[in-house]
Simulated scan of single mutants.
Amino acid sequence: MRDESGAVAGFFCPCIEITEQVFADRRRAADAERQRRLFEQAPGFITILSSPEHVFEFANAAYRRIFGDRDYIGRHVRDVFPDLGDQGFFSLLDQVYTTGERYIARGVLIRFQREDGSWDERILDFIYEPVRDETNQVTGIFVEGHDVTEGHRAAAALRESEARLRELNDTLEQQVAERTADRDRMWDTSPDLMLVLDFNGIFRRVNRAWTKILGYTPDELIGRHVNDFVIEEDHAATVGASEAAAAGSMPTLHNRYRHKDGSVRWISWVAAPGERRRPRLDRSRARPRSAPAVRRWSSDVRRRKLTYACSTKFALCSRGPSRVNGVDAAGPVPHSFSDGQRTIRDHHELRQAQGELPGALPCLRSRDHRDALRAGQSLSDAADHQGG
């Protein structure tokens, strides 16, 4: 202020208290810094662009991890990513800044060149959100998104797998039918006995060879117990083989079945479990009890046993003794005799050979060892012919 002479006599200083404004600015700055720290730690990528030229103000760690650390702050997006010019991203940014309307994208492919010169392709979900000032004018764009490349690749692999599965399913029914037909042909045409037993010992399925070898039709077997057709002395062995199969092994078994005509046939078996579960044994009936099945394959070995018995007689005759175990060799065959390795227990089986194989009876009755050998050769030839 000046006096009457014009000299400065003092100062007039009007003051305005701005304490609240300073504190408010500090709070806004602190909030902005805290928000940036949160953005920095966000799992999705975030960047903030300002002005119509889309200048980088912020880029978080996830953004730098995906696109590389390119010294973003203060640079135009077109300068940082010149290779994106023909992919439509710049025009989308211009559109959001001009219209003030957000843009949401899902599963968008982006191809960009890294700083080392290599090219990378990623699939992104992202949003362009306009940033406004106090006057509601657009001043920048907030960009947030996620890299969903791995998820899309997994989904594509799943779709490819499902397509292959559909293709397989289209032919599966035909494949199953063909394999079932092959199995049924093998089952029906096999010359060996085949059967399916449950672990109660009940016939569930048999093939046609049962009629040819033992004379029984399937209707006469299905639903009946296996020991109804096995001679009593072999019941225990039959049960033991079923138990072994139920335990998971594949036992072999030689047991005797009664033909429908009353004769006895030796059968050689291989048993396999339908399900690996051990049955409980009902000792009162000597039958294993459980639900799953035992499958068996067999062949008729009776002819081999008869041939072996007669061959044993031939050997005894060829040695020249007139008596075997105190009995005249020309007389009735004793109940049992041995060649030092095996014992033939039932001479009636040898007698039954007469109806099975031509020349068997001369073998049993021959007194002269030369006649026995000739009869044995006839018997062997007949056995080979019938077995074939």
Rank of each mutant, 00 (worst) to 15 (best):
L158Y: 02
T217L: 15
N207I: 09
A156F: 07
E162A: 11
W187P: 08
T211S: 12
T149G: 06
N207E: 12
I141D: 09
R179T: 14
F142T: 10
A155D: 12
V148Y: 02
T139R: 05
E178H: 02
T211E: 14
D184E: 11
I141L: 10
L168W: 00
T171I: 11
V176C: 02
T217F: 12
M186W: 03
N200T: 02
Q174N: 13
W210M: 11
I202Q: 00
D182K: 01
G151L: 07
A181P: 00
R164V: 10
Q175R: 14
I141F: 03
D182Y: 05
E144N: 12
D198H: 00
G201P: 00
A163Y: 01
W187L: 12
V206I: 04
R185N: 12
T180N: 01
N207Q: 03
P218W: 12
R185C: 11
G151D: 11
R205Q: 12
F203Y: 05
L172W: 05
G201I: 06
D182G: 08
Q174V: 13
R185D: 06
D184T: 05
G201A: 02
R204Q: 09
A157W: 03
R208C: 11
R159N: 09
A157R: 12
T217V: 12
T211I: 04
R179G: 10
R183Q: 12
W210F: 15
F203T: 03
A209M: 09
S161T: 15
A209D: 07
R183P: 01
L193C: 04
R159L: 15
F199D: 03
G145Q: 08
D184H: 04
E167L: 08
S190I: 04
T189Q: 07
A156R: 13
L168P: 00
F199Y: 09
D192V: 01
F142G: 15
L193M: 07
D147S: 13
E160F: 01
F142W: 14
L158R: 09
T217N: 14
R183T: 09
R166D: 07
G201M: 01
A181M: 15
D147W: 07
E162Y: 07
S190V: 05
A157Y: 00
L193I: 04
A154T: 07
L193N: 04
G145E: 11
D170T: 09
I213C: 14
R166K: 10
S161N: 08
T189R: 08
F203V: 01
E173K: 06
K212F: 10
V148W: 06
Q174E: 07
Y216S: 11
R185A: 11
N200C: 07
T211H: 12
H146Y: 14
P218Q: 13
M186H: 04
R183A: 11
A181K: 14
V148I: 15
W187H: 06
P191D: 01
R179W: 01
Y216K: 05
W210L: 10
Q174W: 03
V196H: 00
